[in-house]
């Protein structure tokens, strides 16, 4: 058994779990955060993407014990109260989701893509960056639009904050 202590969405969590417990299993079965989904078993669909210390990581590929001490943010922790993150807002505005199953992973990855490209994003870059996230409903058309729009919103937000 492994003692795991970590912060999830700002909340301190301490659990004792079998050594082989995956982070996604910890999140879903132990903490009840079911917004992080499992869509495959080869780490390719990206539905389980969360942020670990600010980086997008597939939580089906990480042992819970490996991230002891880390700061994890899941889809449930992205909004500030009732204020949605610009990436969440953009997915809604641009109809970037249909069944919603891949959406949490897409949004978490979208935020990461924007963070890693402060120079801005064009369509080709967004499409390449999404290679680790599969959607079967949208044909990606509106996901690409949503991430592009959120990137602009997030960078104007950053500018605003920097100016303050």
């Amino acid at each position: 058994m492994a003692d795991v202590k970590l912060t999830v969405n700002g909340r301190k969590i301490a659990k004792t779990v079998p050594d082989r417990t995956l982070l996604v299993t910890l999140l879903r079965d132990e903490i009840g955060l079911t917004g992080t989904h499992v869509g495959c078993d080869t780490s390719q669909c990206g539905a389980c993407t969360v942020h670990i210390d600010g980086n997008a990581v597939k939580s089906c590929t990480v042992l819970a014990a490996q991230v002891s001490g880390a700061e994890v943010v899941t889809i449930e922790g992205l909004a500030k109260g009732d204020t949605l993150h610009p990436m969440q807002e953009a997915f809604r505005t641009h109809h970037g989701l249909q069944c919603g199953f891949c959406t949490p992973g897409m949004i978490m990855m979208g935020v990461d893509i924007v963070n890693r490209h402060p120079e801005g994003l064009d369509e080709e870059t967004i499409r390449k960056e999404l290679e680790g996230n599969i959607c079967r409903c949208t044909g990606y058309h509106n996901i690409v639009k949503a991430i592009g729009a959120a990137a602009e919103e997030m960078s104007s937000g950053t500018t605003q904050m920097a100016a303050e």
Binding site: T34, H37, T74, I75, E76, R92, L97, G100, F101, P104
Partner: peptide, 21 residues
């Protein structure tokens, strides 16, 4: 019009069968 159902899906509050405990 934007979708009514989106709020729960973009905040991780969807309730799929595997989310039933």
């Amino acid at each position: 019009v934007a979708r009514k159902e989106d709020k729960r899906f973009i905040t991780g509050a969807g309730q799929y069968t595997d989310d039933v405990y």
